[in-house]
Design a protein around this nucleic acid. Structure first.
Lengths: 220, 220
DNA sequence: GTCTATATTAGGATAGAC
DNA sequence: GTCTATCCTAATATAGAC
């Protein structure tokens, strides 16, 4: 693997583990066992590294977010879809950990990140609309709009919030709880007779309650 | 006013406006038109200043959060209550802007902040329980618990999220939208015949829709 | 491409006079 | 209590040899 790629890979890992602010160019060079001078030969400091990492994240995230807008998800795919979003966020969690401060220091990323969030809202709105149109839930336009915004907020901040409360990092259990926190909001809107949907919800909830506080092995 | 108090006051203002990370001890001294040496005579750097600001915030916030736990709110007080919480957060928004990074750098604050969030969850649970017990809404224990957690998350991150999306700071309109975002979640749980409650919700929503995108003068 | 050595800078902090 | 002058440190960045 080329040095230039290794720098990206290990930088991401270091940023996620230690927090971007706590990682210096010299730290990165040390982990890679190259000299700082060599690092600067490939990237002129942390800025261009972070920029490239964001570009990678943006590309992946855009692709995932576009899916439910382009083509409605199957009912049972919604769960999986939220898991994927949370995993994606976990992979680049250093961005979220100190979002404002990173966007302040790298102004060219701010607008791009904002567009991602707006796309996220649209993706959520699509999902909710599909559930409504296919008759699983019954929800007004205003409430659907509110819910889409709320979903986007929860997706963005849930992992951070969990870290704040539990002190730890994203585990499968906390992601599972995050997904449940999202979809359980649909419960009061489920239409009479949509048993398939209600069963999925209940099953999901029980699995979560059963596993809360336990190890993570038998989830997912 | 004593220099020591002026330092606190102007530090808070600077931190909120510029972001704590972008403010150096010398900046603070400059704004106060005192020398850095003088600043260090009163506080040995930013750390003790931030610590004292947190203590002030903690005291106020604890008091506000305890209110609905100690004594149930009147129905119409819930609105006001959420406004107060958002205002309180706005007053010390620099903490929230880069929560993780501040808590990392000032480890003694982490546990205390976490306890505040847990108290927040309990306050939300109290409010929801009261609404349920007094017959305005009908909600299961599990869903009430989920909602309390969600309210706490939204209270914590809504202002930051708004700043991210709009680029600006907390305005009366954005706070209003935040409050609506919270209470509108109660809609599907409102019991038949709780017209008083439903009327309040509708009135609230219309006021928001009317004002969205407009100036902030006629809100609150 | 990679190294060693060194330069630059800014934030944070103190000593000692007044 | 306040100021001036100065210091220390860590992060960032570059020059030039190999």
């Amino acid at each position: 693997m080329k040095t230039k790629d290794r720098i990206l890979q290990y930088s991401l890992q270091l940023f996620n583990e230690e927090g971007e602010q706590n990682v210096t160019p010299v730290d990165i060079a040390n982990v890679l066992e190259i000299s700082p001078g060599n690092l600067y030969y490939h990237y002129k400091g942390k800025d261009p590294i972070i920029h490239q990492l964001f570009v990678d994240f943006e590309e992946e995230f855009k692709m995932v977010l576009s899916a439910p807008i382009t083509k409605p998800l199957e009912l049972s795919d919604n769960w999986v879809y939220f898991y994927i979003l949370f995993e994606e966020i976990a992979d680049f969690r250093f961005f979220y950990r100190n979002l404002q401060s990173i966007l302040e220091r790298y102004p060219d990323l701010e607008g791009r990140f904002r567009r991602l969030v707006k796309l996220k809202i649209r993706a959520m709105a699509s999902i909710i609309k599909t559930l409504n149109d296919t008759g699983f839930i019954n929800i007004s336009d205003i409430e659907a709009g509110q819910m889409a915004e709320r979903f986007a907020l929860q997706l963005t901040y849930w992992p951070t919030y969990q870290t704040l409360l539990d002190g730890g990092v994203s585990t499968p259990v906390s992601i599972h709880r995050g997904v449940f926190g999202l979809i359980s909001q649909l419960t009061p809107y489920v239409v009479e007779g949509a048993d398939e949907f209600l069963a999925l919800l209940t099953q999901f909830r029980d699995k979560m309650l059963k596993n809360s506080g336990r190890s993570t092995s038998d989830i997912c």
